[in-house]
Amino acid sequence: MLDALFQAAVLTSVAAATIRISTPLLLASLGELVAERSGVYNMGLEGMMLMGAFTSYLAAYESGSLWLGVLAAGLTGALMALVFAVLVITLKIEQIVTGLAVNLLGAGLSTYWLRSAFAGDGKTPTIPFFADVPVPGLSNIPVLGPILFDQRMLTYIAFLMVPAVWLFLFRTRYGLIVRCAGDNPKALDVKGVRVAPVQYAAVVFGGLMAGLAGAFLSVGQAARFVPDMTNGRGWLAIIIVIAGLWRPYPILVAALVFSFLDALQLQIQGVGIAIPYQFMLMMPYVAAIVALMIRRSRASAPARLGVPYTRE
């Protein structure tokens, strides 16, 4: 039975699924990376992603345009992040508790809104979802073509964001300012750069990316919204940032590892191997704990991560 898993066609489809599944994890964790580099722990990622998934579904359903859905998701994530930023940066409320409140808000509000927008038989209509966009020429390369160059537009965007975020953080002046806000905000203050606006911008960017990640789940993949459909992906994104040592390329690797576990589970269910599916579904969460057990050193974390900056 295991032979079935190792056929070339199956391996290709597992690899292609890994790339596809990594999209929301990559978008959310790159956003979280920027926020954390500025010194703010955004633990509300799960809720922002969930609301993004819902608003993109609703907007796409009402307007008939998937891209309007994506836009709605980005705006929703950014708006929630703005509220979060006011609470943790200006009012300096405990970041963990605030993040949790945002998660609960996302879960409650999306379910409530879904039920009041689609009252009646309790079924939500499906919408068309994003089709694969083969890259001309490249998608014809044997093996690699169908894996890498026959994906959805949001997936290409997510992968292009990896070098883009790297360039921004490590090769631009603004990136330096963001990193400085997380490592040594006082130095920034002394130089005459106000810390709070930098952190606001970083956190709002993180929320926008979380919203886009949510959009991929609903309009990019499932073609509908299901309550709690993020299912811990926001938390996995936070773990990916830690496992990726707060750097874009290692984050890409970590996101691919988690996605591979998920892709494998889909394939095993498809092939009909007799492992209870619950075992496979809990794998990413178990792997997350193991990853944190291995990556014990926090030496590469921003020095002032999670500590609100107060001018003396």
Binding site: V83, V86, L87, L91, K92, I93, V97, T98, A101, V102, L104, L105, A107, G108, L109, T111, Y112, L114, R115, S116, A119, P227
Partner: peptide, 27 residues
């Protein structure tokens, strides 16, 4: 016919307002 799921949203909204109010007391 207001969906009962509203309760979960209210709980979170109450918490957010309370956190903000509590923190604002410190200023």
């Amino acid at each position: 016919s207001v969906p009962s799921a509203l309760i979960y949203a209210i709980q979170a909204i109450l918490l957010l307002f309370f956190l903000a109010g509590w923190a604002a007391c410190n200023f």
